[in-house]
Computed example of a mutant assay.
Amino acid sequence: AERHAELLRRTLVLLADQELTSSAFAARVAASTGASLGACMLAGLAAFSGPLHGDAITRVHALIDDARHSGAEQTVRRRLADNKSLPG
C-alpha cells in the first residue's frame, strides 16, 4: 500500500490544478476525517459515478455532435426550448 501512496499523492497534486470538482471534494472530505487512502479514493469514485459528474463528457460530446449536424445556434435554441441543459 505504501508504494501506491506516493503515486496517489502525485496524482492528487496534479489534479489540484483542475479546481475543486465534486469528486475531489468528496475525497478531500474523507481525507480530512483521517480515512485511509483507499477510502478517500472510494469516496471520490463514488461521487464521480454520478451522471452529473462522471458522465458529463458523454453529454458534451452529444452536444458537439448535434451542433456539427444542425449548427450551433439551432442546437442551443432547440435545447433551451426543450428545457435541456447545455453541458460543459
Rank of each mutant, 00 (worst) to 15 (best):
residue 37 L to G: 01
residue 52 L to H: 04
residue 76 V to F: 15
residue 27 A to T: 05
residue 67 A to C: 07
residue 64 I to D: 02
residue 42 L to S: 02
residue 52 L to V: 06
residue 80 L to Q: 09
residue 68 R to Y: 05
residue 39 A to C: 04
residue 16 A to L: 12
residue 61 H to Q: 11
residue 8 L to C: 08
residue 17 D to N: 10
residue 11 T to Y: 10
residue 8 L to W: 09
residue 42 L to Q: 05
residue 40 C to H: 00
residue 7 L to N: 03
residue 14 L to Y: 05
residue 7 L to W: 03
residue 81 A to N: 07
residue 12 L to G: 07
residue 1 A to G: 10
residue 50 G to A: 04
residue 34 G to I: 14
residue 64 I to Y: 06
residue 87 P to E: 04
residue 87 P to L: 14
residue 27 A to K: 06
residue 51 P to L: 13
residue 25 F to E: 00
residue 3 R to K: 13
residue 1 A to F: 15
residue 26 A to Q: 05
residue 61 H to D: 06
residue 24 A to C: 08
residue 33 T to F: 13
residue 1 A to E: 04
residue 26 A to R: 06
residue 57 I to D: 03
residue 79 R to S: 07
residue 12 L to W: 03
residue 58 T to D: 07
residue 34 G to V: 13
residue 38 G to C: 06
residue 75 T to Y: 10
residue 18 Q to E: 03
residue 65 D to W: 05
residue 29 V to R: 04
residue 18 Q to L: 15
residue 40 C to G: 04
residue 4 H to V: 15
residue 7 L to E: 01
residue 18 Q to P: 00
residue 19 E to N: 05
residue 64 I to H: 09
residue 10 R to Y: 10
residue 84 K to L: 15
residue 4 H to I: 15
residue 29 V to L: 11
residue 57 I to P: 01
residue 37 L to E: 00
residue 9 R to F: 12
residue 34 G to M: 11
residue 69 H to Q: 09
residue 30 A to Q: 01
residue 70 S to K: 11
residue 33 T to S: 06
residue 71 G to T: 10
residue 66 D to R: 14
residue 9 R to Y: 08
residue 37 L to N: 04
residue 7 L to M: 12
residue 19 E to A: 12
residue 37 L to M: 08
residue 11 T to C: 14
residue 10 R to W: 09
residue 39 A to V: 03
residue 34 G to N: 01
residue 63 L to Y: 05
residue 74 Q to K: 13
residue 37 L to T: 07
residue 5 A to L: 14
residue 49 S to I: 03
residue 29 V to D: 00
residue 66 D to Y: 06
residue 69 H to E: 08
residue 16 A to D: 02
residue 11 T to A: 15
residue 67 A to Q: 05
residue 1 A to Q: 06
residue 38 G to M: 10
residue 53 H to C: 02
residue 73 E to C: 09
residue 5 A to S: 11
residue 15 L to D: 00
residue 7 L to P: 00
residue 57 I to T: 11
residue 88 G to A: 09
residue 48 F to C: 05
residue 27 A to F: 10
residue 87 P to W: 14
residue 25 F to A: 07
residue 23 S to P: 02
residue 78 R to K: 13
residue 21 T to Q: 07
residue 65 D to R: 14
residue 21 T to E: 03
residue 18 Q to T: 13
residue 3 R to F: 15
residue 17 D to S: 12
residue 86 L to G: 01
residue 69 H to F: 08
residue 77 R to P: 00
residue 71 G to K: 11
residue 61 H to W: 14
residue 70 S to D: 06
